[in-house]
Computed example of a mutant assay.
Amino acid sequence: MNSAAAGRLARRAARSLVAMTLFGTPLVLLTFAVRQRSDAVVALDDGVIRAATDVARAAHLVAPLVVVQEVTQPVVVYAASTLVVVRVAVATGARRRATWAFVTMMAGWGLGALAKLVVKRARPVLDSPLAHPHGYSFPSGHALNATTAAAVLLVLAWPLMSPARRRIAVAAAVLAVLLVDLDRVLLGAHFPSDVIAGHLIGLGLTLASWTAFVRPTAVTSSSEPSPPASSSGG
């Protein structure tokens, strides 16, 4: 590896480290608080989850919330997202960018599953539950995967969109993720801290992987990210 390539690799590693620190620090603190059953976190989580499920029950929102739950299952989200990635790759020839998008989404899916096994937080326990989700609670897989997919697809398509379409895309992505967040809490499937952790992992992973492996390119429909610096070193 020549000095120029080594310099590029070092800069990308530094940017990725900054991104991981930015999102990783609050994630570690939140995870520690959850594992230690911090009084403040437990009280806030329990209060919000009980109030939210009462609202959902009183407003007869359970049926539509269950529909949202099912259509935002990770396998559905990533199947749809993969179709978008393939379409972008075929239409623009940006295969490296598309590969980055797919790998990052799969990494997010796996990272969320691993985090659940590490933290092993039980689901909310309610007197009259509205849903009966399985598995551990922290982080919210729905929130994590929706955040990861939305962030990755925005980055993937960003150079291809006009300023007006970018604003629309960002608004649509934020609204979609917020809908998933509300669904998880209103159904009593996750505590608010589970949802926040999902966002931190999804956004942190996307930003860290992008800054580590892809160099910013000009805004053009034919833009193509450069390969990782390490690939040029043999």
Rank of each mutant, 00 (worst) to 15 (best):
L203K: 05
T104L: 05
S81H: 09
A52G: 05
L205R: 00
S128G: 05
S226V: 12
A164I: 15
L83Y: 12
L178R: 08
T104Y: 00
W100F: 07
A13Q: 09
E70C: 15
L61S: 06
M106V: 11
T217G: 14
E70A: 15
A107K: 11
V214F: 14
L27K: 06
V28P: 01
A13V: 07
P64G: 12
L156V: 11
A94I: 12
W109P: 06
G141Q: 02
P139M: 11
A63F: 11
Y136C: 10
T217W: 13
M106K: 15
R37Q: 14
D183S: 09
A91V: 09
T72C: 10
S209W: 03
D54H: 15
P227G: 14
V219E: 10
R165I: 13
D54F: 13
L83P: 05
M105T: 02
A151L: 10
K116W: 07
T220H: 11
H199Y: 10
A58K: 11
V177C: 00
A157I: 03
Q73F: 09
A157T: 08
L111W: 13
A94Q: 00
Q69E: 15
S140G: 07
A13K: 06
V48D: 10
V77M: 08
V42L: 14
L117C: 10
L114Y: 09
A218I: 13
L156M: 13
V118S: 04
F191W: 02
L156F: 07
T31W: 01
S38L: 03
T25D: 08
L203E: 02
V62A: 09
L207W: 02
R123T: 01
G112P: 06
V77Q: 04
A5Y: 05
V48W: 03
W158M: 13
H60I: 07
T21H: 07
V85S: 04
A33I: 01
P216F: 06
T31E: 01
V68W: 02
Q69N: 14
Q69I: 10
M20T: 11
A151K: 01
S230F: 12
G24M: 07
L182C: 09
P124M: 06
A80W: 09
F138G: 04
V103M: 09
R123N: 04
L114A: 14
R8V: 12
V76F: 10
V48N: 11
T211D: 04
A4Y: 12
T21S: 13
W158R: 11
T53N: 05
V75H: 13
A212Q: 04
A212P: 07
L144Y: 05
A89E: 01
V48E: 04
L186T: 02
L114F: 13
S231W: 15
G135H: 13
L117H: 11
S16H: 06
A33F: 02
T220D: 15
T92V: 03
V55E: 02
T206M: 04
